[in-house]
């Protein structure tokens, strides 16, 4: 099976991002990396092809710096990685981003002479947390769409069974291929690269498609929403801190405050 994973490069999600003096998010302390949910998608795809055969390719939209996440992906089981250079589309919203990805996928599929059976995206990015690109992409590509998948099992008769995570429980669904899926967190974590695979990945070439050269209709190039800037969230006032030697004293003090505040 031919699987394509869309990967966004994001700042390290374990670092707290605050607005800088210029009113923009200060990303200086956060190393760029592949979005966590996209790396889960890749691991799920690699496990599938290891068991059933096929290849995993990665696609990322962005400037040359985005090759950081693509090289990492190539070191953990992806065979090919493509970058769509977004020059000329810096104001892309989720709609335009998805249209560019859809056009790039079409072009790669035409070049390969075969469609990808599965296009996978993480359920959301850890930076903007919009959770919209895969939805727009599935609509644009007009392919069956399954969200929050945590497991896929061997295809059968042009369809694949997927385990879809719900708020409470799971559904096993049958999706005709080719399909688009979003991936949630499976029970396992993505693998770490071996040194030799890291070295090999560094040498691999990443084909670049220029966004401006992709076949997009005019309407598909115009963002539907405009990003107007950032603001600090309102600060919550810290209240009373109770520091007593004896737990019983601390609890007594808490009940005094609760009574005064008429809470509970």
């Amino acid at each position: 099976m031919e699987i394509l994973v869309c990967m966004k490069q994001v700042p390290d999600d374990s670092i707290e991002i605050k607005l800088g003096a210029d009113g923009q998010p200060d990303l200086s302390k956060a190393e760029p990396q592949g979005n966590a949910f996209d790396t889960y998608a890749q691991e799920l795809a690699v496990r599938y092809i290891e068991a059933n055969g096929g290849t995993v390719s990665i696609l990322s939209l962005g400037p040359a710096e985005n090759e950081t996440c693509l090289k990492s992906a190539l070191a953990v089981g992806a065979e090919k990685a493509y970058r769509v250079d977004d020059a000329g589309f810096e104001d892309a919203d989720a709609f335009v981003t998805a249209n560019l990805l859809a056009a790039a996928i079409k072009k790669i599929e035409a070049d390969n002479g075969a469609p990808f059976d599965l296009v996978l995206c993480g359920r959301e990015s850890t930076d903007y947390i919009g959770g919209e690109v895969a939805e727009y992409l599935a609509e644009k590509a007009a392919r069956p769409f399954v969200t929050n998948v945590v497991e896929i099992v061997q295809e059968n008769d042009g369809a694949i069974q997927a385990k879809k995570e719900l708020d409470s429980g799971y559904n096993w669904v049958d999706a005709p291929l080719p399909a688009v899926m979003t991936i949630s967190k499976p029970d396992y974590d993505p693998r770490y690269p071996k040194i030799k695979d890291k070295m090999a990945a560094r040498k691999k070439e990443v084909p670049v498609l220029a966004a401006v050269d992709l076949a997009l209709e005019d309407g598909d190039k115009v963002a539907l929403v405009k990003y107007l800037g950032y603001q600090e969230p309102p600060k919550r006032e810290a209240g009373v801190k109770i520091q007593e030697e004896e737990p019983a004293d601390a609890v007594a003090k808490m009940f005094e405050i609760l009574a005064a505040d008429k809470v509970l």
Partner: peptide, 20 residues
């Protein structure tokens, strides 16, 4: 419309304009 939403896990908020 003008919409506000949290980004970066809530440490910042983003203002978004929608023309139609």
């Amino acid at each position: 419309f003008c919409v506000i939403r949290p980004v970066y896990g809530g440490t910042a908020q983003e203002k978004i304009g929608i023309a139609g």
